[in-house]
Nucleic acid binder design. Sequence first.
RNA 1: GGGCAAGUGGUGGAAUGGCAUACACGUUGGACUUAAAAUCCAAUGGCCGUAAGGUCGUGUGGGUUCGACUCCCACCUUGCCCACCA
Length: 820
Amino acid sequence: MPYTIKEIQKIEEKWQNIWKDKEIFKVDEILDKPKYYCLEMFPYPSGKIHMGHVRNYTIADVISRFKMAQGFNVLHPMGYDAFGQPAENAAIKHNTDPSEWTETCIDQMREGLKRMGFSYDWNREIKTCDKDYYKWNQWIFIKMFERGLAYKKSSSVNWCSSCETTLANEEVINGGCWRCKTDVLQKDLDQWYLKITDYSEKLLEDLKMLEHWPDRVVSMQENWIGKSHGVEIYFKVKETNDPIPVFTTRADTIFGATYVVLAPEHHLVDKLIKGIDNEGAIRKFIDRVANQSKSLRMSGDLKKEGMFTGKYAINPANDEVVPIWIADYVLMEYGTGAIMAVPTHDQRDFLFAKEYDLPKRIVIKDSKHPDMKQESMSCAYEGEGVLVDSKEFDGLGNVEAIEKIGKWFEKNKKGKITVHWRLRDWLISRQRYWGTPIPMIYCDTCGIVPVPEDKLPVELPKDIKITGEGGSPLEKSEDFVKVKCPKCSKDAKRETDTMATFFDSSWYYLRYCSPKSDKVFDCDAAQYWMPVDQYIGGIEHAILHLLYSRFFTKFLKDLKLIDFDEPFIKLLTQGMVLKDGEVMSKSRGNTVDPDAVISKYGTDSLRLAILFAAPPEDQLEWNDNAVDGAWKFLNRINRLFEDRYDSDSSGKTEMDKEDKDLNFALHETIRKVTEDISNHKFNTAISSIMILMNTVDKYNKYADPNKELLDNVVKNIVLMLSPITPHLCEELWQKMNMPEETITKAQWPKYDEAALVTDSVKIIAQVNGKLRDRFDIDFDAKEEDVKKIVLDNENIRKWIEGKSIKKFIYIPNKLVNIVV
RNA sequence: GGGCAAGUGGUGGAAUGGCAUACACGUUGGACUUAAAAUCCAAUGGCCGUAAGGUCGUGUGGGUUCGACUCCCACCUUGCCCACCA
């Protein structure tokens, strides 16, 4: 009898309770068992779980359960990235406490996760807003401070006027706030930074170790770190002798430099323009650029603007005198904030020179266009070639010249070979309430003093009304701000900024190893579980979260708390869930509520449908029909299970041809499903099981049934499906009276090599590459025997009659191809 | 502008040098039923053909190969990421 939805829901609830009561998924460090750490990116608790969570966590659950069945001691934890702005916004809107709002959301989310039947060790649940967690944020921060990796700097920061907070460079997307898309302004503030740039080289180098990461994530990180090799060349101001170092990756074009450009914010600008005729106009220009919102300044094809300073620079390569300009296309944040301009061989310089009628000089000749003239160029030539007009370097290939000229500069002390990075230090200060307080104290006598370890955590004060207006909310609590200096005991002030939440999520995977430890984490537990064997999450975290986590791991290794370099061995980035071609989101109003699907079809159907619909890395177009299909399939399994006793027991002692074929299909399926799940190809694993079931149906129709064999087939189907649809499989397993208390304790099936040995094999026959017939031949048959069979065949003769055979290709056990 | 990924039936997708469209959804027809649902059976890329069968066909154009959805070159389209990075 097919199940009703009520019965399915009862079954699902029953097994979820059994797993909980028997603590099936509770794990400890068992030294004589191989460990496996399966981790998914923990959610921000915004309320109910959505389809993206369902997909992410179902993939992780299948991997975890599969590894358990294969005999691994599997750590599979869950927690909440609970600090952050939405809680604060909700608090303002509903006039509540952010912690209350967050706890409510966490409870809702936990309930949703439990309903999915995921195999979490709930004893290890963590919330980053617990003081037992954020205490260790503060501890890590102080360790960084002690080693000079956390420092304070007054600087122009990205400021979102809508969220009233500073943003990291990484949080500025196309010049707008990553959250609300408001144009980001520049504002000067005293801010805490983490010196991630100290680890640039290691963060780049160790990417090579990450063979099991998607290529595109590795290349995104590479681009973000942005190492470029070049030469810093020391130009000088002719009038004052002030040095102007410029950075270039194209030292080969130095003899084509016809002017120098400074960023508007460059420190020399003030001195250069003081007292000159058009000083006022230049200052106006600089102000205008400074106030230009980043989104405008960065929007691609903006016309380059600049002004002449009236001063000149000396090119150290040939002592030539060139004009010094100020222009908006040179950025203070990169390189030295000054460039040498080579209009003939750099497109940006070319456009600028054209606009302001500056001179050009060709110094690289392209062999394909030997008569290239600087007067008639329509764009810069950025390709390879041979140097001309470059003194003793004439005739060199430009690639070779980059190295030789760099060395010449070093030898003559007119420059140095150097490296520049795109990666910048990480701004972590937030003028927000709902985050980890930065554990620092300002004392007029002692300066900046960290809170002593035994005084941690610095707890978030509760007496603050969050209004969302201006400045840091913590400043409003007098009890919080007023403090005695830990060194001299005089009156002092607390830091009122909180940490960016990316700090919280940069080490949570270590806390899971020993969530209740009274240290940052237990080193033995971390040593046992880490690194994470499989990490699963969205591509949107490809840069920030993963880079910061890698940075923290390297730092903690330097503290000698751990002894590995990389936290995540394998990474799977699952695709987004779409509806009608668009990403599912609340703002678009195209979400499908997992709860509604579960109420109609049950958890197992939802899990099966989402895995079968697409490979995990691909985008998934949501379709309600898919769950309907999954539901039908589960009932088909149940029917198959019940039907196997219907046939009369034949008391067979030996396997006949049909039995052997079915047995072959069974073992071939075990082989294929094991391989597919190992490679995260869940969709084809499921289709293989479907094919096996179709085979059983045919067998039941035509063959003299072998009850023992059928039992074995059904048992293995249930085992293979158990990571995917665990509830129904538990139910059937129990009905089969198997020895294990639950199917989670059963071993993953192994295929029998002997069952896969066949004496005959089907091959195809092609004539000129076109399929003409199929043959059953002996396994590993000799070429001459096959040739005879094929050439004697009527169907084949039809195609080769009267033509001469040029070639006879034979691929054993696969095909023959006759070329005529 | 740069980098990466992808493009296959009505739909989701399978095949990574060797039978294109597995598996599933949907659709159509049939069985069962008073009826419906469920279930079962059959058909399901285009064109020609009563059929057997033939022929074309994996974004476009070329190439390599006995053989190409798969490898190489060029182009088109879509998506994602980066973007005045010297």
